[in-house]
Nucleic acid binder design. Structure first.
Lengths: 304, 304
DNA sequence: AACATTGATACCCATCTTGTATCAATTGAT
DNA sequence: ATCAATTGATACAAGATGGGTATCAATGTT
């Protein structure tokens, strides 16, 4: 097979139609250029140039081959540049998984941030529950996860990206809906709508722990998987719920959210998790960008 | 710049993800493959493979580069094949010029012949007068001409591709329209519609020569450039005309064509002309095909 | 613990590539 | 007509490159 160097020589020669001038442009002397062209013609098995001792012109085959060669060379430098970009993390593609609720709280600003700083990185977003994300992370099917702690996997690093207060959710028709704050004691004797232990272990453990610590016992517990579904039940008058602050963004009209008194010091965390070692530099770029962004925001919050 | 050999090595390695197996597939030993990959990574300035002493896997940059490399290699073999095809004359593009009338008589069968035998040759057809074709041929703007003789140009070879009888054209309302044959004497005292000396020197010389030899003198001569326009005038009753047999294909309803008596031995020739030396093998293929076709047809005619 | 397999390295040799010097052929100027 | 200049091709020596064999260190496997 011919060489890219030969193609480069031929393309230049096809433009100049003069061996010496072409050789000068190629920063080489004329004899090796002649030899390259001869080798190329021998390789293809056809005359690419019509030389008649004084002038050089392209044959039909040569004209076609010059165009094709130029295209190959263009693609070569393109491959070079693109690969360097991907290696540097300025381009590429990453897959980010996220919990349903974080699509209201954190994902929109993340997308905006990436679009602004890394427009050449293609994003694939996949909504998954925290257990699903842990499995996907362990098998390296996703680059970055946005999930609920804890992340007990080896070779994974995590950063907290969001910390929220808890809110009490009550039906709009409920007598407590008129209060500005709702004490956790008020849940006693009411139906608690909350997260199931398997699909939402983090919230489940947090909510049940909260009630146990406060010695409050709901009359019944209704398990539902997603926050927006829980709030839908609350709006329908099924019962009360404890949800993170970002649930405001997906609360239906029939559900009222109020600050929860008696749960101070308990927060809902959203963490970003990713493999410590990755073969995808775009992932590293995104992680660095997010952490820098969070640090800047933390400093801003501290200063104010 | 990297080498196509390196790309070939890398693509194979990216498929196998094992140096020894890849080397075997590439018909080389493992050490030079390792060196090629190292050289490639050094050239690009990025790690394409993540090797951890026991397993090899592609980095994000490597995966992208493997796809791009495959594309480059595909295009290289494509360029190779296509150029060989063009050089052999099995593919390519040719420009054929032709006189208006030959588009009825000869060009359709020519196109059909080429489509059948050389489907990969792209045709460009340009209708031109004979003098225009001679100029285009001299400046090598066309590969093959279909025109009227003589072709007095150096380094051009010609072949007669069509020889036709002459017909007399009279208005359908004319008294001669009822005859089965029309003698050239009958033109005497009538208006002759015929070709002008500059744009149609061949027909002009032929027709005027014919009348001079027969000693027949029309009452007036009306010059018009194209055969179909001449027949249009005849149909409109302007006068009579002498046209080649193939004019039947473009005769309007108001014009009647009859064998011309008294012009035996005078024929209309259509010749194919092309440069003796061409850089376009497709042109040579077409010429050879046409001449073989004509020879076959001549033998057939002789036999019958 | 012995063994097999992995990719990387050292070294040798054949081949290829390059540059200098030169040639034969052709053109243009005088 | 003749001479100088320019064209692409060729010869040859020096250096660079590519491939092969033998081998190594590291890591799983039995």
């Amino acid at each position: 097979m011919f060489t890219l160097v030969q193609l480069r020589c031929f393309v230049t020669l096809a433009e100049e139609l003069n061996f010496r001038r072409a050789a000068r442009r190629l920063n080489m002397s004329q004899p090796p250029l002649s030899r390259h062209i001869q080798a190329l013609e021998h390789e293809i098995g056809a005359a690419l140039l019509a030389r008649n001792r004084r002038s050089v012109q392209l044959t039909a085959a040569g004209a076609s081959f010059a165009r094709l060669s130029q295209r190959i060379l263009d693609q070569a430098v393109d491959a070079y540049r693109q690969t360097r970009q991907i290696a540097s993390g300025d381009a590429g593609e990453i897959t980010i998984s996220f919990t349903a609720l974080s699509s209201y709280a954190f994902v929109p600003s993340l997308i905006a941030l990436l679009r602004k700083h890394y427009p050449a990185i293609a994003l694939t977003l996949r909504e998954m529950t925290t257990p699903q994300q842990l499995a996907a992370l362990a098998s390296r099917q996703v680059d970055i996860c946005l999930l609920r702690p804890p992340v007990a996997l080896p070779n994974i690093r995590t950063t907290r990206v969001l910390r929220e207060r808890l809110l009490a959710a009550v039906p709009a028709k409920h007598r407590l809906a008129k209060r500005r704050h709702i004490n956790i004691d008020e849940f006693g004797g009411n139906v608690l709508v909350t997260y199931p232990p398997v699909e939402g272990p983090y919230f489940h453990g947090m909510v049940t722990g909260l009630f146990q610590a406060a010695g409050v016992y709901p009359s019944a517990i209704q398990y539902i998987t997603q926050t927006h579904a829980i709030l839908g039940c609350v709006a329908a008058g099924v019962g009360m719920a404890v949800v993170p602050e970002s649930a405001k963004a997906c609360a239906p009209a029939g559900a009222v959210l109020r600050p929860l008194v008696g749960a101070e010091g308990v927060h809902v965390d959203l963490v970003m998790a990713s493999p410590i070692e990755t073969t995808n530099p775009a992932s590293a770029s995104v992680l660095a960008l997010v952490e820098k962004h969070l640090a800047g925001r933390a400093r801003g919050a501290q200063a104010s």
